[in-house]
Design a protein around this nucleic acid. Sequence first.
DNA 1: GTGGTCTAGACCACC
DNA 2: GTGGTCTAGACCACG
Lengths: 136, 136, 136, 136
Amino acid sequence: MRIELNYKSGQSPYLQIVEQIKYAVAAGSIESHDPLPSIRSLAQELRINHNTVAKAYTELERSGIIATRAGKGCYVTDNHSPLKKSARRQILSDAVDGVIVEAFHLKIDHNTYLQVCEERWSAFEKRRKEKRPTKN
Amino acid sequence: MRIELNYKSGQSPYLQIVEQIKYAVAAGSIESHDPLPSIRSLAQELRINHNTVAKAYTELERSGIIATRAGKGCYVTDNHSPLKKSARRQILSDAVDGVIVEAFHLKIDHNTYLQVCEERWSAFEKRRKEKRPTKN
Amino acid sequence: MRIELNYKSGQSPYLQIVEQIKYAVAAGSIESHDPLPSIRSLAQELRINHNTVAKAYTELERSGIIATRAGKGCYVTDNHSPLKKSARRQILSDAVDGVIVEAFHLKIDHNTYLQVCEERWSAFEKRRKEKRPTKN
Amino acid sequence: MRIELNYKSGQSPYLQIVEQIKYAVAAGSIESHDPLPSIRSLAQELRINHNTVAKAYTELERSGIIATRAGKGCYVTDNHSPLKKSARRQILSDAVDGVIVEAFHLKIDHNTYLQVCEERWSAFEKRRKEKRPTKN
DNA sequence: GTGGTCTAGACCACC
DNA sequence: GTGGTCTAGACCACG
């Protein structure tokens, strides 16, 4: 489970965690009964207070997406029909639209925009490989 | 100028206003020198406090998107972004990073991601041309 | 960190705070990564509303002079001014214009004006060196 | 009487007028019994509302610096001992110090600073000559 | 009428 | 404890 926080988005860290886990479940990246990272380990990894992670997990539990078994950690619950590719693509399109508006106001041209889109993807892939060299 | 607040999004009302006005300017729905709704009338329309709208307008002025003259109102400007190229690129990168994290959790592959990035840019350009048939 | 408000100057309290903190940072009285007084404690000390201090800090953050992490406090940053050279020069020109109008009304001649401009720069540099004997 | 307003100083236009006239009197640029421009002509010249000029004049009258004779305009009153050169120079120094702090945060070097100081003076002189080609 | 600022007090997110 | 946001209502500066 790879969570990344964006401190410039104007969205609370705990909501970012909720959203990313929701999306991962929606896409089938985490399947039913898969365990989630423990509150304290995720907090340590993201270098945030564990209460923040706990709040996110509470919210996810309230939404019925995960369940916690005391002393054993949190698991993804049953009954999640993963979204179709078109639906997932639509979510991404909305996010990309926001980036494009930002690029417009920053007077960034098409080439630079595509360059940044590519570069950041590569940087993300690189970060992933460095952190978990043997898996995924 | 139609602004709508979503109280479930987890995003501050003032940031929603900022974003929607940015979108409107980027899309060409409001053009340079067009007046914006007055702070207090917009506040009344959205049924929020006028300070919240004022905060949004202050933020937009700081970004160089609107200009305001006390006692006269607020207008869309034409010269955006007095930031250095590197600073502008950095802002875009941060926004792109957010999208990439979403794409990752949605299990969207590199090709689809790039395709969406290109497609949405084209769609944005097209919409802008339709709105402003004689210019740009 | 000693901030004092002058209620007769005709300048907003929040702008006076902004200016005084800018001065303190420029003079080297507060150095990079030094913490600033908390919003609420400074408000209490100055006997003003905390929102007024918050507004000043927001302004300083947008100028790149301080950084703030919610729940942790505000700190002086080291990298200022992501603005284009032309934009930075424009801001300085506007400030200089104000001085020149004063000089004109005070019947100060060109030579004296330039002399004062030079002298004060030297005095500023000297003060900075005294404060930070090992750096810079 | 040449008044210039600076909309970026954070000081009210009416206070700027008050200050500039005070300084002019302090420097002896306007002597006792000299007439001031009429409220409406000054308002027109500065392209501001006449109420704003009226407010400045009222303030000056309250301070005893000028007197108004109904229907005849405003005059500088008696008993103004002009400031000594050193005192006027001190006022200018304080203003210059503010500019230098700004230059520091804008990371502007000594040469650029001096260049801007010179340039703006020339620009001011040029403006003065254009507006009043035959006098002062 | 416009925008700008301040106050008092509240709630939330985070450490 | 920290900062961030919002509300309600007030006063000022300006047109």
